[in-house]
């Protein structure tokens, strides 16, 4: 299971980095979202993977580490808020700059817009 989780985190991160490096705002936002998914999974896995263990201390000796879950919760809330903000900002940039390129490049003189 460790290998599978590691593979998923790796693929999500790679997709996120690739999309974040694109030239248009929508793929960039998607890329940042993928990156935040990857990091949330990563944080979650840092408490070690345990199957069938209680989420907090119970009678038995084995239990999953509750702290990463709290961290992930915080990270999810923050990244959710940030994603909402960056989407609104991207829309505003689209409206103000006339296109959705991250540099807001206008092609008025050089060629088609």
């Amino acid at each position: 299971m460790e290998a599978l989780i590691a593979l998923i985190i790796g693929i999500l991160t790679a997709c996120g980095v690739f999309l974040a490096l694109r030239g248009q705002t929508f793929p960039v936002v998607l890329g940042l979202t993928f990156l935040s998914y990857a990091v949330n999974l990563f944080l979650f896995a840092m408490g070690r993977l345990a199957i069938g263990a209680p989420p907090v201390i119970a009678d038995g000796a084995a239990y999953t580490d509750p702290l990463p879950q709290a961290l992930v919760l915080t990270a999810i809330v923050i990244s959710f808020g940030m994603t909402a903000f960056v989407i609104v900002l991207a829309l505003k940039a689209r409206a103000e700059l006339g296109n959705d390129h991250v540099d807001g490049t206008h092609y008025d003189e050089e060629g088609p817009r």
Binding site: A20, L32, S36, M82
Partner: peptide, 12 residues
Amino acid sequence: LHFVVINLAGST
């Protein structure tokens, strides 16, 4: 936009 995107990548 640049400031926000680069800082979000930094947060990650």
